[in-house]
Design a protein around this nucleic acid. Sequence first.
DNA 1: ATTACAAATGACAGCGTTGTCATTTTGGCT
DNA 2: AGCCAAAATGACAACGCTGTCATTTGTAAT
Lengths: 342, 342
Amino acid sequence: MAATIKSVAEMAGVSIKTVSRVINKEGTVKPDTLKRVEEAITALKYTPNKAARDLASKGASVLGYVYDNPNAYYIIDMQKGILDVCRKNNFELLIHPCDASSKDIAKELVDMVDTAKLAGLILSPPLSEMPDVLGELDDNNINYVRILSGDGAFDSSLPYVLVNDFKAAFDITQHLIKQGHTHIAFIAGDEIHKSTIERFNGYKAALKDANIAFDESLVIKGTYSFETGVKSAETILAMPSHPSAVFACNDEIAAGTLFGARMKGVDVPNDLAIAGFENSPFSRQTFPPLTTASQPTNEIAQHAAASLIQFLRAKKAKLPHENLVHTFVPELVVRASTEKAS
Amino acid sequence: MAATIKSVAEMAGVSIKTVSRVINKEGTVKPDTLKRVEEAITALKYTPNKAARDLASKGASVLGYVYDNPNAYYIIDMQKGILDVCRKNNFELLIHPCDASSKDIAKELVDMVDTAKLAGLILSPPLSEMPDVLGELDDNNINYVRILSGDGAFDSSLPYVLVNDFKAAFDITQHLIKQGHTHIAFIAGDEIHKSTIERFNGYKAALKDANIAFDESLVIKGTYSFETGVKSAETILAMPSHPSAVFACNDEIAAGTLFGARMKGVDVPNDLAIAGFENSPFSRQTFPPLTTASQPTNEIAQHAAASLIQFLRAKKAKLPHENLVHTFVPELVVRASTEKAS
DNA sequence: ATTACAAATGACAGCGTTGTCATTTTGGCT
DNA sequence: AGCCAAAATGACAACGCTGTCATTTGTAAT
């Protein structure tokens, strides 16, 4: 029923190999024949059979996007960015939400790559920051690109994308300090995420930079969740002479903190300033809207996917390839939750 | 390098066809040989080559999930549900976010099915409710399952999943009425979504049921967005003797309304009760939390995917199949945004 | 035992491409 | 015109599996 390379070849009066050359843009076809073939392709509405292609060329062009992240907005943005690049490069995408805390996660990924014959993986935090998972992937010769939190290049034959949480956290803290706060609480997210550490370090660095003594008692451990924020608000407000500002490790925590403060009748930002991180859509929709840091998720995703594809191509062609690295610095977004009405 | 069906056959001392029978669970293999083959498979870590399989059996086992929906939580839930079923049935999933308002959307989908040799599509609203898109799919003999808003079965040879927004909206409105409200505004979402219409009808039915005259001036048109909520709040609060309650077509609008009310210093729920729809995670995280209706998105997704797969199998085997229909009724979730402190 | 028939297994031809290598065509030089 | 290398094209085997049909093996009834 559907057109095949053979029917196109017959119609154009050439061999199937020539048609193959045309669809693969090998560039060794005379303009004249090229045109005939292209016309035949259009006329027959021919699209190459992917299965046959994959079989003949050994190995499919499918990437896997692996994630364990509760932030739906982040995931959706990542998916869109990756898909864009995949479509442009004739790759397909397999998504794989999973449980990073599962004991067999590494094996699960290896199996998946194996079964689906994946060309490579794209890893989001926290998976991209788990040494044992990465080690297992390395052992099995699996290609992957990582998106992770960090502020400097490191040695790796595989591509990766860095997000400089340190710098952004520094900026946010500095912003709070400029608003006159000296007593700033920090609410941490899951420690399995390197971003938590980086943001914490940025926070400390900004304090130091402003000659404000770091006070351990102002640091609250938690997870990247609304509930953490709610509980932390209670804790913070119960402190004798409580902090006048809070830097929450992400918007969800910040929203929870805001909620908790509200419950206690506390005025934000006048009695308590609150800053988040990530620029989730809802950070704009809380009341008051949250000061936060914005990372270009879609762009990050595109860079990650593009690097991986470039890497795979270089590898296939046995070309040497440069170390593919990109760094992004989330940008400070100031909103009402940290700015006193003037 | 990797094991093939041939190497397994050799090791087990059988023909490749027998191995094929084993991996396809055809069930016509003697227990004895079965065991030998399975051992060989394990020993060699053999996994069938998907491309070869697809090629030989004409047509891959890949479903496409097509959506144009700004609600990230909904999409993530849907994906997870679909993915679960796909994995269980050895199907793969291709996700396809798209723009339903694009003129060529129907063509885009047909092309996609064609190119990726998809076995079928899963359609979310609003795509599942657009006659011209469906018509084009029908014309091209594309198999699909729809998830749509409605309250009764209809004739269709293809499976579909119904969500009874009418009933749920009725329940929400009734809840507001029971709280003593008689002056209830309705904020509509995009009209391209049938859910908007259904929810509107449910709202009207509940009013009628309580002998409250329907007042056209209390209906505000909008889109499923936070901004619509914010603007509507202004409109509503500017009304002479403004409504005491609002039924917003979804949580995002409701959150916006809440935000807008807050801006004006209005007390929710005492001066204005607000109800949403969808039970988005953030409906629990606004202050006060929103009354809403909860739909089991994950389950809906699973049913949709399962019906489609069942349909495809029946079709392939040329078996007659019953009309595969499931109906879900979202459940009322009462929270502080509509309950006056007692 | 023999026959008859069902169950289990195998041989082999595709499926629609790409890769390899052989062949033909082309165009620039003498 | 004649020659040669380079460019263009083609023939054909693989890729790893499934479908079809033929063959062998097992089983129950005579």
